[in-house]
Structures are given as structure tokens and as C-alpha cells.
Design a protein around this nucleic acid. Structure first.
Lengths: 345, 345
DNA sequence: TTTATTTACGCAATCGTTGCCGATAACGTG
DNA sequence: CACGTTATCGGCAACGATTGCGTAAATAAA
């Protein structure tokens, strides 16, 4: 099964011209007479000619495609990010090739191999939870592949990056719980490898300290796979309830952790917020429909995707290597709903 | 900024061989001595050689990439589908290029242009809600581009297709409402252009008729943009409540319609299911956490994506044009939760 | 020893496009 | 008339990899 498209040769043959002339006529070169140009253009139209991007890629050594690596597509936050990425890429005539790491370092390396071998012009990546070194990225980057980090950012590689103010998001969420009267606030967070985990965790801790509350390590649970595996979340939540002093609120630091946590609380028959309050990072657009309506920290995912892609394309299309790298930080937004209703005590 | 990869020429030069010999050695041709092969292989390893897929594409007239057109990525159902698509494509060494139609016919045509010009080897498409003819697809299909429909299937084009038994899903959902004691069951559905809408609507109607209940046209509301635009859903729901006989249950036929409907009911201050029951198609994985826990018809989205991609790749890689087309129909699953609790009357 | 066969490799064309150079004709200039 | 200029166009090579064909050398067969 082949798909035969008309080439510049077909036009040349039809008009008795050379391919060079046709090529130039199509690119509106000054060397070609208006008459010939018109002929060529008409013929191209008639034969429905489309330049072959593959041939162009080969010649120009660029593919006009960018690679995107995320842990999962089926995740509100990332699908919204991809939406933003796709919108800019589309505007600028670029393909988006998507790969999922499924939170596996090994798979991430395979993804990069794959994307590099497909000659992507640039890379947008939110690293997997297992990733704690930059070796695999560095080798590509050193060979000249533009890379932009988004969401999960790795130190040790000089590139652009786009994220949110994780500290602020976490601080405000925790502060909100404190101000709502909660005294024993636990935190469910991702792998310690991830920059975002640590920033959010720090925000949580700082908020507690600001209000003269203790940071209890027992109240901090790490879920290595960040909610991708439900049983892990369930176990972490259960651990929180083995404490002598049971927490009266939980702050969760990612989308799947938040929903996973809520699910576990439901299964344990706990009432939110009566028995325990819940505030979490989430980009679900039905947070208000949850039981109870969820207080969430929402990230501007679409804008993050757009910003990251703009930075990447700017770098790809830059004539000179870029030395000055930008770290763009957007603001998360706290939306207060019922899951953190002020405590009655 | 360029990304220089090692080519077959570099190996040839390094070893004092011709490119043909290197090429053949790498492909383990019988014409090359074991000795030379070993040299070449070692050198390729050392220089970290990766064949340039663009050059291969140009020569073999295939790009090893497939195009996917959906209305929206940021939608549970479609992101799960894409997950399935990506999994098969990755296994088989294909790229996935994603385009969104945003439910616009015009945008869909542009997407197809774009994908065709990027020389995709095949196309997976769930048409936009505005699409009601096959002209744009037919011209590509006639020129030999393999196409597989999924979810939303268009008549008038002989291709493979993958969907669910929409009739059954809708029938069972409606039947469940009937058996739960609901008497005035309304239906919120998508554009009449879409095959899935009609099949689901028919399932709804047939269920009513089977139980000797009237089909009231006033109880059927079409949302042209299928929930993509919230205000449309809100308006449709509000219309249902202007009836003299207000409905006591709503059946919604797609993911965003279901959540949009629930959101509207919340805003109107209606209790579900006490004031009105709700059952809908949805692939949200937090349906059980909604208020109330939602009774849903869930489609095996991941499997649909996998099946569609397998059919497409089979067609792409087939030597002879395929004459016999398959319509693969998977089974949706009804999960009963609280939003359709038996009526107390 | 001569001829046939095998082994192992190189040359060149090809995919579609463009850049560089060269060619040709018409025309103007001194 | 000789030469330079300009306008228009064609030929060739190259991007990276594959492949049909040709061929030299080595080996086997006659």
C-alpha cells in the first residue's frame, strides 16, 4: 500500500522544465520569469502538489518535529500540558511526537533513544520519578539537541525550564489548612528524587513553622510512583492512620495522589472534612463535583505547555547557540471548596 | 543549532570501506565477510551509529509514523485511547502524531492536510462533531492512505473501524434506570451527525419501548459540541426542567456531557439521585468519588486504541490492498453506583 | 593450465528537494 | 563589432541509506 504524491518532477515533466526551475518558481525566486512562475503555480495547484517534508528534512537536517516525554498521557495535568504544547507547535508548523515513560527511568532512556533516532529538533521533558541523574539527557544536549524541562526539573543541565511556584502553592495550601483550624496536618508527596516534591514539601514545612507548628516526620509520606500505583497511595494513607496522634488534615502534592488519597479515605469510611480535611494539587476539572468538593491547588497547565514550547522553538530556530537560560515560573492557584471547611472543635 | 549524528559514511571513512559495504554489513548481508562485518559492527557501536530514519523514509517512501485525529486530548476517554494507540505504535516502532480538531470540521481538514503532508503511513480518526461527509477523507483514502475509524465512525468509506456496542451500553443504562423505578427518563446526547449519538439514542429509545414507556421528544436534548462547551450543556439541562412534567432521571451519552450535566445539577441545587438520577457514559477514573458516586457506562478505551492501531498497522504493512474490512465492536460496561439509587416513591 | 564459479566488495542510481555553478540568448554599451 | 550585463533556465551534487549491477581476486572445477 503506497501513497503516491505528486513531486516537483511531475510538474517539471508536465511543463517541460527542469526540477530546479520548478523549485525556484515555487519559492518565488527572482531568477524565474513571472510567466513561468504562473505556469508552475497553476500546474502545482492542478496536480495538488505538496512539498515532501521528508525530503526537506533530509536536506535541511531538521525534521520540524519536537519530542515530548511525560510519565503518562492519561492524567489531567499532563494532557492539559500537551494541549498547550500542541497548540503552539501546530501554529508554528511543528509535529509533536509523544512518548510516555510510565515513571520508569529505563523506559525514559528508550524514549529518548527513540526520539533522537527520529531526529526531533528539540525535546520537552518532564522526567520520570525514577530519574535522578542527567547523564542520558546530557549526552543528547551536548550533541546540540535543544531541551526544555517542564514541571519536573532536573538540576545539572543548563537549559530553559518552565514550572510553577511549587513552594508558594504548597505554602498557601498548608496555610489555608492551618487557618481553617487544622492542627495535625499530614503530607502525602511524591518521590524525593523530584524537584517538585521537595519544593512542595518545603512549602508545607515552612508554612507549619511560620505558624509555630511542629513538622512531624511521621506525618510525611512519600509515594515513589506519585499515585500512578493506587496501592502505594493506599498504603501511605493507611500508615498515616497508624500514628498515635491521627492527622486531622492531609495535604497532597500531585493530581493522582489527591484522587488516590480521596479514594482511600472513602474506602476507609472517613468523612471529609468532618473526620479529615483534604487539600491537594490537582488539575481535574471536576474537582468541584467530587465528594466533597475539593479544595485544590491548580497549575496553569495549558500555559505551561505553551510557554515551554515557545522557549523550545525559540532555541531551535535561534541562529547562535543560546547561553542565557530562562527559568519561567508560573503561579498556581488555590481554589477553596468544601474539603477544607473550617474545623468545628 | 544542529544535531550531528554519525552516518554510514563516517563508518566507511573510518574503516576505509565503501558505504555500500557498511550498509550491507549492518544488515548482515551474506555478501560481506564475517571479518568485515565484525569490524563494521564494532565501529558502529563505538561511534554510536543510529540509522537516519528520515533518509530511510525518503527511500522507502514510508515514514513509520501514524496520524491521530481526535477532538480533544484533555478528555479522559480520548487520552486513554491515545494511551492504547501509543502503546501499540511504540511496540512496533511507529511514531504517533497527534492532532486535535476541537470539534471543528474546518480544523479537521487542516489537520488532515498537515498529517498528509507529513507523510503519515496511516490515519486513526474519530471525526469531529461537525463532520458529516467523507469527502476530505475519501480523497486521501483513494490515494492509498490506510484509515481506521475509532469511536466516531463515518459511513461511506470502506475501512476498518473500532467502536463499542453503543446500543447495548445505552440500552442497559436506560434499562437500569427503569428498573430502579424512574419513570421520566430524559436523554442528553451529542450531535445528530454522529453515529455514536444515534446508536446510543436508539438504545435509550428501545429500552423505553421495551418497558412500554413513551419516548418523549421533549426529553431528548442534543448538545452539538458534546459537552466541550459547558454553557451548551447547561442550557440543555435547563430546558429539560422547563417541561411541565420534569424528568426524574437523565441519561447522558458522553463523558463531558455527564460531568457537565452533573455540574449543572449541582448549580441548580438539585440532589442526585433524590431529586434526579443520573447515569452516563464516562471514562473518568474518579467516577466513584463524585457526589454522588456516579453510575457510568465505561468504554474500554485503552483496548479500543490498541485494536484500532493493530488494524491500521496490519493494513499499512499488508502487501496487497485490503478488500475485506473489519468492524470491531467492543463491549461497554455498566458500573452501578449511587447516582441511580432505586427511587423511593 | 584454462575456465567457471564463488567471494567480497565498489560504483552509481534512487528517493524529493535545493544550492551552486554554468549556459544561453537577448540586449545594451563603447 | 566585441564585450559585458542581465534575465532565465538547466545540470550536477548533496542530504543518508539501500540496492542492482559490475568486477577483481580467490578458489574450484575441468
Amino acid at each position: 500500500m503506497k501513497f503516491e504524491a505528486t513531486t516537483i518532477k511531475d510538474i517539471a515533466k508536465a511543463l517541460g522544465l527542469s526540477t530546479s526551475t520548478v523549485s525556484r518558481a515555487l519559492r518565488d525566486s527572482y531568477e524565474i520569469s513571472e510567466e513561468t512562475k504562473k505556469l508552475v503555480l497553476e500546474c502545482a495547484e492542478k496536480l495538488n502538489y505538496r512539498p515532501n517534508p521528508i525530503a526537506l528534512s533530509l536536506k535541511e537536517r531538521r525534521s520540524r518535529s519536537i519530542g515530548v516525554v511525560v510519565c503518562e498521557i492519561a492524567n489531567n495535568f499532563f494532557s492539559q500540558i500537551i494541549n498547550g504544547i500542541e497548540s503552539v507547535a501546530y501554529e508554528r508548523g511543528y509535529n509533536v511526537i509523544i512518548a510516555q515513560s510510565h515513571e520508569s527511568y529505563e523506559r525514559e532512556i528508550m524514549d529518548l533513544q527513540f526520539l533522537a533516532s527520529r531526529s526531533v529538533d528539540g525535546l520537552l521533558i518532564s522526567v520520570s520519578t525514577e530519574t535522578n541523574d542527567t547523564a542520558h539527557l546530557k549526552s543528547l544536549h551536548d550533541r546540540g539537541l535543544p531541551i526544555v524541562f517542564f514541571d519536573r526539573i532536573l538540576e545539572g543541565l543548563e537549559t530553559h525550564s518552565v514550572g510553577v511556584d511549587n513552594f508558594k502553592g504548597a505554602y498557601e495550601a498548608t496555610e489555608h489548612l492551618i487557618k481553617s483550624g487544622y492542627k495535625r496536618i499530614a503530607c502525602l508527596t511524591n518521590s524525593e528524587y523530584l524537584s517538585i516534591s521537595n519544593e512542595r514539601l518545603t512549602g508545607y514545612k515552612e508554612a507549619l513553622l511560620s505558624y509555630k507548628m511542629n513538622v512531624k516526620e511521621n506525618y510525611i509520606q512519600h509515594c515513589f510512583y506519585g499515585g500512578m500505583i493506587f496501592s502505594e497511595v493506599e498504603e501511605a494513607v493507611n500508615k498515616l492512620f497508624t500514628q498515635k496522634q491521627k492527622p486531622d488534615a492531609i495535604f497532597t502534592t500531585s493530581d493522582k495522589l489527591t484522587t488516590g488519597c480521596l479514594k482511600t479515605l472513602h474506602r476507609r469510611g472517613l468523612k471529609v472534612p468532618a473526620d479529615i480535611a483534604l487539600v491537594g494539587f490537582s488539575n481535574s476539572d471536576i474537582a468541584e463535583l467530587l465528594h466533597p468538593a475539593l479544595t485544590v491547588v491548580r497549575q496553569p497547565a495549558y500555559e505551561m505547555g505553551r510557554a515551554a514550547t515557545e522557549l523550545l522553538l525559540q532555541q531551535i530556530e535561534s541562529k547562535r547557540p543560546i547561553k542565557q537560560f530562562e527559568k519561567r515560573v508560573l503561579l498556581p492557584e488555590l481554589t477553596i471548596r468544601h474539603s477544607s471547611t473550617p474545623k468545628i472543635s
